[in-house]
Design a protein around this nucleic acid. Structure first.
Length: 559
RNA sequence: UGGGAUGUAGCCAAGCGGUUAAGGCACCAGGUUUUGAUCCUGGCAUGCGAAGGUUCGAAUCCUUCCAUCCCAGCCA
């Protein structure tokens, strides 16, 4: 059972580990070095978790190293807040970059030197064309590009111009530095890509030191090489950039040549993992911020109560390949349930309370009953639960016209109260509109502990002593979208599920649980797993539903 | 119509020329059970995008075709 959770390796065998195995066997590398390279321009989401688990996981599996490197080459969108949030999320997921935290901006001076090398070799030039002209001259899929009129500038000329760019002698956008490759290439990335642009913006790391900033394609490969990265793992959309990645390293004076390997992004059904779209949900108020428990952000998953180990396990289970895919959310839920089933103490919580009066139970009596905190694991211990004449049960545990398949309360039927007595339903009290507002039952005093005595009692239901029940707010979550692949829609906002949050202001919980200090996930037996929300307070307890239990009765009932 | 990739069950995914095509999720059928939970047992691809070909032997090699995804930022 625990094998599902405790793994020897972080990453199962895949085409990337095969490459690494070969590189190790051929002595191409002795130590493996990977990197997770986020741009600090937003919050991490479940898609990033895949990259984090892959890169840090491979490093751990091979006794290597994984660097955290902020790809901070575009100050326009980056902030320290994002950088801090990213670090918090990685640590929460259970990974540690140790002393290996870097920034692309740490290399700005070296990068500048590499650019000068390209210029000296006649492999880079300063271009004065407007952005519009550049776009026009780049051509398209069916039309080769046209050489820039500035492509023929001499190295000396380019060197002077590039220095002047750095010195701030030109306006933003007036000039760029371009790699001189091939304007006819079928790969548009190779049609003299821009490698430096002029931007007068304050940088989170270098302040106002620079007014020119290197582009991703020039920066990333060299940062990898500078750090001695052996395997640079990125997502599929960078496949077309690999020739450029290799070109830059090959044409500059540097020994290390990391191998870029691409894998497919993680998509999960009924969710969205696009910074832009997630931002839209926040801005339009569909959710309660970036860490709303319905969000696929790491902070959302954390607030929701998903165990980080389960997320790691999830990433491991879905595997690594190059195939575009949408992973079923049921896999995520399965792995969450697996972890929680083994780690969550059981407790009774009534979500939709219905009062039950046990007519033959003494009015002033209170008994303490013992309940196991985990049905399969004695190490969880036991607790004392108060029982009295008036209790709450779940509204759905009573049905007026029930067939034989219904094991719960209906007139004349006997059920077992979890950890307590057998009770038999005698009468349902209704209000003026016909709603059942109270059940009158009798109990069997001989059945304390719910002992078997030959009677056929199939149903066991949870309950709370009314006098001891602690009211709590419970928040139930459903999928945020009604469409399995919202990202594929014309307008994903049309798929937003209007009923993704249900607040139950008057759920009832066993005494003592809401006030506990420990930040644990509880199983409210027969309902779901719950964890306190960040807004939880002792006098205003709030619990989030992490994930429901499997419910084969619900399936049966639908038929 | 250019370039780059990918197609194994409803969703993922092993497989790397040689027994009846791993495993997980989902689904179905049983068993156990003081959670209709958990757990256990069984079922679930004569088939690997399609068609040809090579071979004693093909998901694995070759050819052609089809489908899907990515690329025309001074974003990453």
């Amino acid at each position: 059972m625990t094998e599902k959770i405790i793994h020897q390796k972080h990453v199962t065998e895949n085409f990337i580990t095969h490459i690494i195995d070969e590189d190790l066997a051929s002595k191409k590398h002795k130590n493996i070095v990977t990197r997770f390279p986020p741009e600090p321009n937003g919050y991490l989401h479940i898609g990033h978790a895949k990259s984090i688990c892959l890169n840090f996981g491979i490093a751990a599996d091979y006794q290597g190293t994984c660097h955290l490197r902020f790809d901070d080459t575009n100050p326009e969108k980056e902030s320290k807040e994002y950088a801090e949030a990213i670090q918090r999320d990685i640590k929460w997921l259970g990974f540690d970059w140790q002393e290996n935290k870097f920034h692309a901006s740490d290399y700005f001076e070296q990068l500048y030197g590499f650019a000068e090398q390209l210029i000296n070799k006649g492999l880079a030039y300063v271009d004065d064309q407007s952005a519009e002209d550049m776009r026009e001259n780049r051509g398209d899929f069916n039309r080769p590009g046209i050489n820039s009129p500035f492509r023929g500038r001499t190295a000396d000329e380019n060197l002077v111009l590039f220095k002047a760019m750095r010195a701030g002698e030109f306006a933003d956008g007036a000039k760029v530095l371009r790699a001189k490759i091939d304007m006819q290439s079928g790969n548009i990335n190779m049609r003299d890509p821009v490698i430096y642009r002029i931007r007068r913006l304050h940088h989170i790391n270098t302040g106002d030191e620079w007014c020119i900033y290197p582009m991703y394609d020039f920066t990333h490969c060299l940062s990898d090489a500078l750090e001695g990265i052996t395997h640079s793992l990125c997502t599929l959309e960078f496949e077309d950039h690999r020739p450029l990645y290799d070109w830059v390293i090959d044409n500059v004076d540097i020994e290390c040549h990391p191998q870029q390997i691409e894998f497919s992004r993680l998509n999960v059904s009924y969710t969205i993992t696009s910074k832009r779209r997630l931002a839209q949900l926040v801005e339009q108020g569909n959710v309660d911020g970036w860490d709303d428990p319905r969000m696929s952000t790491i902070s959302g998953l954390r607030r929701r109560g998903y165990p980080p180990a389960a997320i790691r396990d999830f990433v491991k289970q879905v595997g690594i390949s190059k195939k575009n895919s949408v992973i079923s959310m049921t896999i995520l839920e399965d792995v969450i349930r697996n972890h929680l089933n083994q780690t969550s103490p059981r407790v009774m919580g009534v979500l939709h309370p219905l009062k039950v009066v046990i007519e033959n139970y003494p009015d002033d009596q209170v008994e303490m009953l013992t309940g196991a905190n985990h049905p399969q694991d004695e190490s969880f211990g036991t607790r004392e639960i108060p029982f009295s004449r008036e209790i709450y049960v779940e509204q759905s545990d009573y049905k007026e016209n029930a067939n034989r398949k219904f094991f719960r309360l209906t007139e004349g039927r006997e059920v077992r109260l979890r950890h307590a007595y057998y009770i038999t339903c005698r009468e349902a009290i209704k209000d003026a509109t016909g709603n059942v507002i109270e059940l009158r039952c009798t109990y069997d005093p001989e059945s304390r502990g719910g002992t078997e005595d030959g009677r056929k009692v199939k149903g066991t239901i949870h309950w709370i002593s009314a006098a001891h029940a602690e009211p709590v707010e419970v928040r139930l979550y459903d999928r945020l979208f009604n469409h399995p692949n919202p990202a594929s829609m014309e307008n994903f906002m049309d798929a937003v599920n209007p009923n993704s949050l249900e607040i139950l202001p008057n759920a009832m919980l066993e005494p003592g649980i809401a006030a506990q200090e420990a930040d644990v996930v509880y199983q409210f037996e027969r309902n779901a797993y719950f964890k306190r929300d960040k807004t939880h307070e002792k006098d205003k307890p709030v619990f989030n539903q992490v994930v429901t239990m499997r419910d084969s009765w619900a399936k049966l009932e639908q038929q």
